[in-house]
Simulated assay, not measured.
Amino acid sequence: MCGRYSLAKTKTELEERFGAEMLESFAPRYNIAPSQLVPVITNESPRGFSHFYWGITPAFAKNKPVANKLINARAETVTEKVTFSNAFKRNRCLVPADGFFEWKKIGKKTKVPYRFVLHGESLFSMAGIWEEYETEQGETAHTFLILTTSPNAISAEIHDRMPVILKKENEAKWLAMDTPERELLEMLQPYPDEEMTKYTVSPMVNQVANDSAFVIRKTLPMDQFGNYTLFG
């Protein structure tokens, strides 16, 4: 799955990379979590960043709050499940990021956080789908989720799923409404592992409130007793 990611870049860097306009108030994000309002680029507005909540509320659960647990959709079944199929056909988006986090189990109680990045920690986009729903107050809100796929060699050491990272040349096709479904599905593959790397980060990333540059810095992993070790 993908349950946490980072977007530790400036407004200018995002605008230059994606050719879309960002809000003046944007600030880098280091520890993005479900239910938060974050920037995406949608098929309906590809020249500007929209701000949607991460966590889709299904159509059959209208007037419910953003669902923290419904944050990902499996690429292998996205066209089969009614919860996601309509959004996949009509409402696709790019989810900008420069890294994502996963946790490796060490023993029974300890999990070591890792950050996964492209070489150079460059910006990339994850494949997303979005939807519109009505809040309990009668207002219109927008939510999104991230598609996941089987892991590449880098990710498989830590988790059995990874987010779908789109090739830059496929981003416009992902948003285009006339792209055949067959081509869309072909994009939902594990990202080449030779273009990625991972490293351990501080357990401070475990707390959503910790949204500072410190949580994306490389650190030594810690064992169950809090001692620094060299296991990977």
Results as ranks from 00 to 15, higher is better:
P65G: 15
F214V: 04
V117Y: 07
S125L: 14
Y199H: 02
E183Y: 06
K108P: 14
P113G: 12
D178A: 10
R47W: 12
P46W: 12
A20K: 07
W103V: 14
I165F: 06
D223N: 11
I165L: 15
L184I: 06
K108C: 14
E44W: 12
E194Q: 03
A97H: 06
W103A: 10
D98I: 14
A87T: 05
S35K: 06
L94V: 14
E139D: 12
V38Q: 13
L37E: 15
A172P: 04
L175A: 05
E121Q: 15
A172V: 06
E181C: 13
L145V: 00
I216C: 08
G232F: 13
E171W: 12
K9M: 13
V38D: 08
W103D: 13
P65M: 15
D160L: 02
S202K: 01
T110R: 11
C2D: 00
A141I: 05
G48Q: 14
A59S: 12
T148Y: 01
F49V: 11
I154E: 09
E194K: 02
F60D: 09
E183N: 12
E139N: 11
K81E: 01
E194M: 02
S202M: 02
E183D: 14
E194C: 01
R29D: 07
V82F: 00
V38G: 13
K62A: 12
P113K: 09
T179F: 04
Y114F: 13
E136D: 05
N68V: 12
A213P: 08
P221Y: 06
M1D: 07
V95M: 02
V117M: 10
F52K: 05
E24Q: 02
H142D: 00
V164Q: 03
A172C: 02
T149W: 01
E21S: 05
S50N: 12
K109N: 14
Q189N: 03
S85L: 04
P190L: 03
C93Q: 09
E15P: 07
E139W: 07
T200P: 05
S25E: 04
D98S: 14
D178S: 11
D178V: 08
